[in-house]
Nucleic acid binder design. Sequence first.
RNA 1: GGUCCCAUCGUCUAGGGGUUAGGACACCGCCCUUUCACGGCGGCGGCAGGGGUUCAAAUCCCCUUGGGACUACCA
Length: 493
Amino acid sequence: MNKDEVRVRFAPSPTGYLHIGGARTALYDWLLARKSGGRFILRIEDTDRNRYVPDAVEDIKDSLRWLGLEWDEGPDVGGAAGPYFQSERLALYQKYAADLVRAGKAYYCFCTPERLEEMRRKQEAANQPSGYDRHCRGLSPEEVEQRLAAGEKYVIRFKVPLTGKIQVRDELRGEMVFDYATLDDFVILKSDGFPTYHLASVVDDHLMGITHVIRGEEWIISLPRHFLLYEALGWEVPAFVHLPIFLSPDGKGKLSKRHGATGVREFREKGYLPEALVNFLLLLGWHPADDQELFTLEEAVSAFSVERISTSPVSFSLDKLDWFNGIYIRRLSHEELAKRCLPFLQRDGLLPDPCPPERFAYLVRLMPLVQERIKLLSEISQAVGYFLREEIDPPEAALLVGKKGTPEETARILEEVVEALGPLTEFNEEQLEQALRALVERLGLKAGQVFMPVRVAVTGQTATPGLFELLAALGRNKVISRLQQAIAALRKG
RNA sequence: GGUCCCAUCGUCUAGGGGUUAGGACACCGCCCUUUCACGGCGGCGGCAGGGGUUCAAAUCCCCUUGGGACUACCA
């Protein structure tokens, strides 16, 4: 790999579906890579076999692709720095861990989970800072040899200097100083032979030539450990950028499943567009030099810069996402909108799967009527249901009663409408509007007094697209039969 | 408890010594209008507190307060 090339990695752990916070990290990773003509690498950090979720990797890949964040190296596409699954790189971590032991920079620890737990309990009871008490740090080589030979379980711990300080650097926050005394001898290789995050990420970031590590703020407390590892291994330290954490909408604590949707997949299922989610995420922790709010992925690439990422925690509130979604829905062509709505309509049983071409063409025709009225794709069924269903719910005709006039008066108005519509040569907007406005005039009523009953009779709803376009799209047969059903329902009481 | 990070409208944020503290979402009002939306116009609303430094502090420094992260053989 080219030494000057910017190489950025997104390294999720497959312990669940791609989290919205992870999606933002991936976005910024991707943006930096594209911006600098570098490479975007996807690496799967599957070193915790207890929390491993089988279909998580598929979900992560699907979600990333759905968002438009294609990776240049990683699962499915390969690359020179592979393999890209940490579980396939175990020998590497074990080698470096052994090297560190040999160099006297790490040591075998035979402490049992029970002893560790007991130690922690005592520390807490005594209100002491927690951390490993270095029980095995002073073991003689002979004893270590003997216990290893006896097959005792062990982990490898990093030997943190007892005194002194270490200076680390975050690109956004600058230099930070940590006292060694506040760090304990952390585990780098677990007893099952798998590495911990600390070792694995440092080894891989180095071996994969990563130049910029962008990750969540929760890692900044681990920075001194990582610097220590780089130093012990004699490697150059990459640039670190820690992203502000996502707080729950109420501002209390980290964002979690408790606070509603947190998985990219859930947003997708709710009917959010990837364009909207990307735009929303882009602005959660980053701001352009001007006040531009709307960004395509391409525009974001040219505007993006790491220096403009903010450092204060972000409260994850969805209001603006809904606004973005409405904007992007309105920007879609009718054809494209219909295509994106189709799965939701099929899910709700309003259209068959596969959808016959004529039905789809009709759907496309309905799009202009609802495009500026939906904020989520999932709202399409409600918005367009009465067009696709043969029958609507007759009891809805009851809505006509009460507001204005008696049921009988309303029924009479609807009868007039049926009559007025009869002679129409073309059931189109122009003729419909002409006929109905003339009727309103003749009856000496206000437009709404006629239009609203018709609207409800024909759709079962009070909120709909414009009446004339709606009637035209519905077609003569449905309009007349629904009007007659409403009249009958009104008369029945 | 310890270590570390953070602090401008309700939310996302611009502004980094001299600004009527700017924008967006949300909310409210008006206009458009056959309903609902869309759109247009307008409004409400903020520098956590206290000390410094300075002619001048939202901006620099310190303290307090508040919020958050981490404190695993999880990442």
